[in-house]
Simulated assay, not measured.
Amino acid sequence: MKQITQRSKCPVSFSLDFLGDKWSLLIIRDIMVYDKFTYGDFLQSDEKISTNILADRLAALEQNGFITRRVSAEKKNKIIYELTEKSADLVPIIMEYNIWGAKYNPDGEQALIEELKKDKQKMIEKYQDKIRRNLGALS
Results as ranks from 00 to 15, higher is better:
24 S>M: 05
129 D>A: 09
132 R>F: 02
54 L>A: 06
34 Y>S: 13
136 G>C: 12
77 N>H: 00
121 Q>A: 10
33 V>Y: 10
60 A>S: 15
137 A>D: 14
95 M>Q: 04
18 F>L: 14
95 M>S: 03
40 G>D: 09
40 G>F: 00
85 E>Q: 01
125 E>M: 10
42 F>S: 06
104 Y>P: 05
99 I>H: 04
62 E>Y: 09
7 R>G: 15
94 I>Y: 03
95 M>R: 04
27 I>N: 01
16 L>R: 15
38 T>Y: 00
110 Q>H: 10
10 C>I: 11
34 Y>K: 13
20 G>N: 12
96 E>W: 11
14 F>C: 11
75 K>N: 00
81 Y>K: 04
46 D>I: 14
34 Y>I: 07
32 M>H: 06
29 R>M: 08
8 S>K: 13
23 W>K: 06
90 L>G: 13
101 G>Y: 13
71 V>C: 01
38 T>W: 01
121 Q>D: 10
65 G>N: 14
54 L>I: 01
20 G>A: 03
71 V>L: 00
20 G>M: 09
97 Y>S: 12
100 W>I: 15
113 I>Q: 11
84 T>F: 05
22 K>H: 03
10 C>H: 11
130 K>I: 01
74 E>M: 01
107 D>H: 07
70 R>L: 02
55 A>W: 13
70 R>K: 09
